[in-house]
Amino acid sequence: MVVDKEISPNKIEQILETVCDPEVPVLTIMDLGIVRDIKINGEEIEIIITPTYTGCPAMDMIAMNIRLALSENGFHKVTITSVLAPAWTTDWMSETGKQKLKAYGIAAPNKKFDIPADGVECPQCNSLNTKLISEFGSTACKALYQCNDCKEPFDYFKCH
């Protein structure tokens, strides 16, 4: 593919919409809000990303997948810059992202449960009669719950 016209940020955004979080594959990196900026200078593209948690092992893979997706679309001069400030927050997660999480079986972040506590809505049966099992779950971003009604265990994507 020959790129002879100016690169549009829209086009780049569309490509980034296809890059998913390897640990929560139902979310794209755009849904998560970790893409902070896209800078275009001629043929050169700089993608500014921010990590969710400092120790999140998915970040290196995400950077690689961004590079791959852009390369597949003919964009090869790509720099990926990671910035820490302002610190990532679940407030940046899109509404579509939250709906996708629920459909996937993960309760979406909810301001009411800024500190994880009993009562997060069960993503399976919508019951509020649920209990917190642990503030730490299978990945840094999740807490572990169980529903007292349908008995299903589930993850809650923590406010951060």
Binding site: Y53, T54, G55, L84, S134, E135, F136, S138, A140, L144
Partner: peptide, 19 residues
């Protein structure tokens, strides 16, 4: 669950140290 909690904390600290 507590095994997961302490190793989650370990991972956070490792991330901080890397930064």
């Amino acid at each position: 669950e507590q095994d997961i909690a302490i190793t989650n904390i370990s991972l956070d600290l490792l991330g901080q140290s890397r930064n």
